Simulated scan of single mutants.
Amino acid sequence: MECLIFRSCNNMSEEERVLNMTLVNGRNFDTQKMPWFFLVLEVTLNVVVILGDISLLFLYFTRKLLGQATNILVFSVAVGDLMTAVVTMPLDIAQKFVYDLSPYLCKSYYYFSNVGKTAIAFSILFLATERILASLDHRLRPLSAGRCLFFTSLIWFFAASYNIWSVVLYHTQYYVFQEEPLTHVALCFISLQFMHVFKVFVVLDFLVMFLLPSLGTLSLFILFVSKKTTSYQPGRPYRPSISVIVFTFALYVCFVVSHFPLEVTMFLIDYESALFLINDASAFRLFQLFSFSRGFWDLFIFGAFRHYICRKEKVLAHMRDQRAAVQSRGKLSLDVPVQPYSTSLLDSDQEISQRISSGDSRR
């Protein structure tokens, strides 16, 4: 049984495979094409994201922070990053060491990868919707905590159901690595009988999982920039929490930058060849690894903004203590409203305007 090099040999019977094939894994067939540096980097990213997201989710449950819309959506983003670190990245690493890949490993890898990506993209879109619309009109709260919880569940249901095609199209494929003796490498790839259908899904995925949520989120930020002066018009008792809007924009930029190179590469690679899969230094594999780093940068963004919020809350607490001390000594007769400590993970509560925080009680 002869096969072209780097062409699928799945038309061979199971008996012919057993008699004629010697399977190798990625670690053995070419050390030059799988630098250990990329493996160490992927494992390191995996560990960091798992520990960081577990700490973040632990903070949610210990402080009971799921009562606010913003926190629920940030929680959804963290769950998506954790899914990538716990399921997708370990399955990707396993493909480099397992000799005869199970079809279920291949299907699970692509399915959970697409589910996490879809859920994060639309969670960021809804997060931008909730914060920006509320900032433009303080009377408008399109996503209360209850509605936000419903739409978040709907996002994950859509992500899980839409990406079911990954379970059908992906399979274990065998490619010739060496003619004498006949040696093959097992790879997770598209079943050849579904190749034309897969090319349709490449375009559809780009539109649904990347372009639609990205353009929707970008349009909301453009709307906010063009109309943000209305957020500070006289007579409003509160001004919007700009820090959370900036935080959302940082998450959006991280998502776009992490996935855009891979999305472009998906249109340029030759799906009839396995070269882009067996070479870890190929553009496809490099951009795929770069997309996995999204969870790391999300943690960095969250940590930076949480540090900023903690410092701001300490300053506000110090100001409240000083005012309370002055009132207790009877030196100030005005009844200055005392703002409670924020129960928001990211200061999603609206900040006190300068008029009220300065002690001016005029309406």
Rank of each mutant, 00 (worst) to 15 (best):
V200Y: 08
I309S: 07
F276G: 00
R294T: 04
R294V: 04
F206G: 08
C310W: 05
L211P: 04
I278P: 01
S226P: 04
L275Q: 03
C254W: 02
E263S: 07
L212S: 11
F255E: 15
L218M: 15
I245P: 06
R311L: 06
L211Q: 06
F255T: 13
H184K: 11
D205N: 14
F300G: 06
P261T: 10
V225Y: 12
V203T: 05
M266S: 11
Y308C: 03
K199S: 09
L212F: 06
V257I: 06
S282T: 01
A186D: 05
R294Y: 01
R236L: 11
L192D: 15
K227N: 13
L251C: 08
V185F: 10
F284H: 05
F292Y: 01
H307S: 12
L192P: 15
H307I: 12
A283T: 04
P261H: 11
M195Y: 11
K199L: 14
M209W: 07
A186C: 06
S241V: 05
T248Q: 10
W297C: 05
G295T: 05
Y271N: 00
M266G: 04
T217Y: 05
F284N: 02
S231V: 14
S191M: 12
Q193V: 13
W297F: 10
I242V: 09
R311I: 05
R239E: 13
Y252K: 08
W297K: 00
F221R: 13
K227Y: 14
T217S: 14
E263I: 07
L204R: 05
M209L: 14
R311A: 09
I245S: 11
F249H: 09
H259C: 15
L220W: 05
V256R: 02
Y232M: 10
F249S: 10
R306G: 04
L207W: 00
A281N: 08
M209H: 10
A250I: 14
S231L: 12
L215P: 14
S258K: 08
L277F: 05
V185T: 12
A186L: 09
V208H: 04
F201N: 07
L299W: 00
I278A: 01
L289V: 02
G303P: 04
C310F: 06
T265V: 14
A274N: 07
L262S: 15
R285C: 01
M209N: 13
L218P: 10
S219I: 15
Y308I: 04
F276P: 02
H196F: 12
P213V: 10
V253K: 03
D280A: 03
D280R: 07
Y238D: 12
L286Q: 00
Y252E: 03
D280G: 13
L207T: 03
M195D: 02
A317P: 01
L251W: 09
P237T: 00
F302S: 06
S273D: 02
R311Y: 00
F276M: 03
H196Y: 13
S243C: 08
F201R: 07
L192W: 08
E272T: 05
E263R: 10
I245Q: 08
Q193N: 14
